[in-house]
Amino acid sequence: MSKITPSDKLTIADKSFDSRLLIGSSLYPNHQIMMDSIAASGSEVVTVAIRRINVQGGGESVIDMLADKYHILPNTAGCYTARDAVLTAQLAREAIGTNWIKLEVIGDEETLFPDVEHLLSAAEELVKDGFIVLPYCNDDPITCRKLADIGCAAVMPLGAPIGSGMGLRNPYNLEIICDQASVPVIVDAGIGTASDAAIAMELGCDGILLNSAIARARDPIKMADAMGRGVEAGRLAFQAGRIPKKLYADASSPTKGVIGA
């Protein structure tokens, strides 16, 4: 059972969450597995995208299934300019009635790395327009500091490219970002399995946002459960404080009183 104390909540802007795992709503085999996976993960925050309407779409929409149960975090995925990202955020606010936005401004379709110049300018405009901005950004401490200075409510450096499952490609930078950050640090993108999430949390990250690693797992519901536990385990280990790494052994059993000595 979890020993995380109730006071150890993830607080972003004016909202506090018991779970430090934020989850996407894309790529699941079907809607039921999505709902069961989100429930198994323990996440309270679920991301959605904003797209041109498809009037042929039948059945219950994802947003209808999620909106009354979870804190919905719309994203600006697919935007390549500050202008498109700002309008997408404003449309999301109008459609969903939330001023929270996961700000993505993509710079390149092969890597899906952020375009820092457009990201900073979109973030500035959206903060001024009253948004709670959570920017997907590079694992660069300077960019993260600038985003926090602009007034972003969190920073969300990537662990590795979106959907790559490569884990943390630059844990040392993430550690510096966590150490210096004045706002919560959420690793967004690149997580492949539960240990990746745990390692990010052990480094001092405040939360994890992921999608593919759960949705594309062979058993998404089981992986969702594993991710929830990985995040909790990593958080507990961070709070507990790991022992220093040493090159040589340090015996754990008493060295005195060994027979035959």
Binding site: G24, S25, S26, M34, I50, S61, I63, P74, A95
Partner: peptide
Amino acid sequence: VEIVNPVSGG
């Protein structure tokens, strides 16, 4: 004119 709605996203 853009007409949009929320869909699955990460």
